[in-house]
Design a binder for these strands. Sequence first.
DNA 1: ATTTTGTGAAACCAAATGGTTGCACGTATA
DNA 2: TATACGTGCAACCATTTGGTTTCACAAAAT
Lengths: 104, 104
Amino acid sequence: MRRDIFQAIADPTRRAIIALIAVQSMTPNAIAEHFQATRQAVSKHLKVLVECEVIAPRQQGREIYYQLELEKMKEIDKWLSQFRKIWEDRFNQLDNLLSTLQNS
Amino acid sequence: MRRDIFQAIADPTRRAIIALIAVQSMTPNAIAEHFQATRQAVSKHLKVLVECEVIAPRQQGREIYYQLELEKMKEIDKWLSQFRKIWEDRFNQLDNLLSTLQNS
DNA sequence: ATTTTGTGAAACCAAATGGTTGCACGTATA
DNA sequence: TATACGTGCAACCATTTGGTTTCACAAAAT
């Protein structure tokens, strides 16, 4: 199976989990409370996220706190930067066009 | 089936197609030449991308040029911004810590 | 020591995914 | 007009996905 950030964020529940954990590390049970799905379903999502290295477990007694790996999020940002470059160029082109129109 | 940008970019071939088209609009055949997969496989990916509104077809005679919808890419950027905020905060905290250490 | 709690793992299932082959059909070209 | 070309679509298939239920097990609590 594919295991990368893009696959990790493909599922809406997983995106919600990521956003939840981003604010504060949480245990599987605490996370599951925020969703309709069963604890086991959430647990499977957590497993995928760990395998994709988007989150990391931190054992604390018999509880496990999952925390977001922000660095992994930056990989999306990095991939996106190639397009950001393009849309900034387009914006500049539009800007130049407007200037040209004003000056004519 | 789920049809959003996150699902669109989940597949590596689709990400490659997006990157390819970003530079210049292309026909399905031209796109397929860049991959090992058959034309039909690429065509299915294009269909998914169109349904996700990541690309749009532009008919030209009997050829169809697919072009990237940059606006849709921005949605990823928008979702990502919540985390960008966090990692900038963390960076500032680190920055403050370093300043404190230097001034003590 | 026994029970409860927090968690992961296995087995199973329906649906979705990514791929293939074959066909249909309009648009160019000979 | 007949042929070649560019493309989409349907049918089929193996694999993956997201979910459920059940079980196992260690750590707390009683």
